[in-house]
Design a protein around this nucleic acid. Structure first.
Length: 263
DNA sequence: GTTCTAGAAC
DNA sequence: GTTCTAGAAC
């Protein structure tokens, strides 16, 4: 099986549950949610439309965003909306896991690559940190940098359907020549816009940004539990001494991502 | 996607 | 001299 069509082979499965658990996260009648094999953030999933769920759209219509938008507009909107609904549910699950593992939650990005490296439409759902051993090249980084213009946020894609038809048609072109050069743009921090000469310096900066976020959230948490204690103390007339209610939640070690599959 | 490597950047 | 990128080959 070639890498190019691997996702298509998943989307064609009549029984997705037969996929290995290292690949499949969950599925519905209409969609599959899989782990990105090379996660570029701490959390990184792909949501795929199943091929028989959107008839009369064919597997070819579902090759990528461009082929989908070129066809029946109503059906296309239905596909994107279905992926969006599934992504919204997934986002909530990720946020729960963020709180369990890290004690706080941070942003989650949901969108498409205009020039994807594998066939079959897939929606990226990833945490906004770009902190992962698989995040190795300028191309990787720029393909997810939110403000660059390469990553197509699903809310924006959905808005094209309600815009002037001329605008819809223009955006639907998704020309390689328009988007591919963006991947070669300067490396800029997605949080503070600082510029970096190469990937290693950017990565250490992202690590600093992450540590800052952790510290900020820790301080917030401490402040909240202090306030909570004070409110309780103020309310209680009978003193029971220290109830040790300020214990922080246990932090789990970040698990290594599952293997297999290609992004 | 990975590995290899020439040559640029430091 | 070492680090890093980017293109070719796979």
């Amino acid at each position: 099986m070639s890498n190019l069509t691997l996702l298509r082979s998943y989307a064609l499965k009549t029984n997705p549950a037969s996929l290995p658990p290292s690949v499949l996260f969950s599925h519905t009648e209409n969609t599959l949610t899989i782990y990105d094999a090379y996660p570029k953030s701490i959390f990184h999933f792909l949501i795929l439309p199943r091929t028989n769920a959107f008839l009369p759209l064919s597997v070819f219509d579902l090759t990528n965003l461009r082929t989908l938008l070129k066809g029946n507009k109503e059906r296309a909107k239905e596909v994107i909306s279905t992926l969006n609904d599934e992504a919204t549910k997934l986002k909530k699950e990720i946020e729960e896991e963020m709180v369990n593992r890290y004690g706080f939650k941070w942003d989650i990005w949901m969108g498409f690559h205009p020039v994807p490296s594998m066939e079959h439409l897939h929606l990226h759902v990833l945490s906004a940190d770009l902190r992962s051993p698989s995040m190795k090249t300028k191309k990787h980084y720029n393909s997810f940098r939110p403000k660059l213009g390469f990553f197509q946020h699903i809310d924006d894609v959905l808005s094209w359907f309600d815009a002037e038809p001329s605008y819809f048609n223009k955006m639907s072109e998704l020309k390689k020549s328009k988007y591919e050069p963006l991947l070669k743009e300067n490396l800029t921090c997605f949080r503070c816009d600082a510029m970096f000469k190469n990937i290693p310096t950017l990565k250490s900066h992202l690590e600093e940004e992450w540590n800052k976020l952790v510290q900020k959230e820790k301080a917030k948490h401490a402040k909240q539990s202090k306030r909570r204690r004070e409110t309780e103390d103020a309310k209680s007339t009978t003193s029971h001494g220290d109830s040790s209610s300020g214990t922080p939640p246990k932090r789990q070690k970040l698990e290594s991502p599952p293997d297999d599959v290609t992004s």
